[in-house]
């Protein structure tokens, strides 16, 4: 029962989306930049988007388990802050590719590397400017039955398979039939 539920908050204007707007498949990931499993799923998801350039778009929502992952919340805030300077997905990649180094100074340096306005970026992290958005994401996940990270939804249905590219691909192909 509770674990079979679909997505409670539909994808909308509020979300970060990459991929074609009219894609037939919307993949929603609830993730935590410090979570080892999300880090492992990241390359698979990246390749998946490359394999289905016209059919799949990705939405990333934050699900930071901040009491067990010390830097997860700051990393989520950093992604949001970068997003408000037009570089959410660049920061999303940067964070997953450097998931062992997510201390505040690391985050600040990623902002600089991406050419962000560093004063604004650092301030947005330290003052938690976008924490409401992160909390909203988290709560929508809880309401959708997310119980750990990463959790994926394909066109609103919960995906219960493994996070390897092959498994995700097969699941997506079923929706494309």
């Amino acid at each position: 029962m509770s674990v079979k539920k679909g997505l409670s908050l539909p994808v909308g204007e509020r979300d970060w989306v990459t991929g074609p707007e009219n894609a037939r498949i919307t993949l929603v990931e609830y993730g935590d930049f410090e979570c080892p499993q999300c880090g492992k799923a990241y390359p698979a998801v990246k390749e998946l988007l490359a394999d289905f350039p016209e059919d799949v778009r990705l939405v990333f929502r934050h699900f930071p388990l901040k009491t067990i992952h010390d830097n997860a919340e700051n990393a989520a805030l950093a992604a949001e802050a970068a997003g408000h300077q037009g570089k959410f997905w660049e920061m999303h990649s940067m964070l997953f590719e450097n998931r062992f180094n997510l201390e505040p100074d690391d985050l600040f340096s990623y902002g600089t590397q991406l050419g962000l306005d560093s004063v604004m970026f650092e301030q947005d992290i330290l003052e938690k400017t976008y924490s409401k958005k992160v909390t909203e994401d988290f709560r929508s996940g809880v309401r959708s039955g997310v119980n750990g990270t990463p959790t994926f939804f394909i066109n609103g249905d919960r995906y219960n398979g493994l996070f390897y590219k092959w498994d995700l691909s097969e699941a997506i192909k079923k929706y494309l039939k």
């Binding site: 509770s2 674990v3 539920k5 809880v142 309401r143 959708s144 039955g145 997310v146 119980n147 750990g148």
Partner: peptide, 8 residues
Amino acid sequence: NPGADGIL
């Protein structure tokens, strides 16, 4: 892990 949606 049953999550928390049912509880809420």
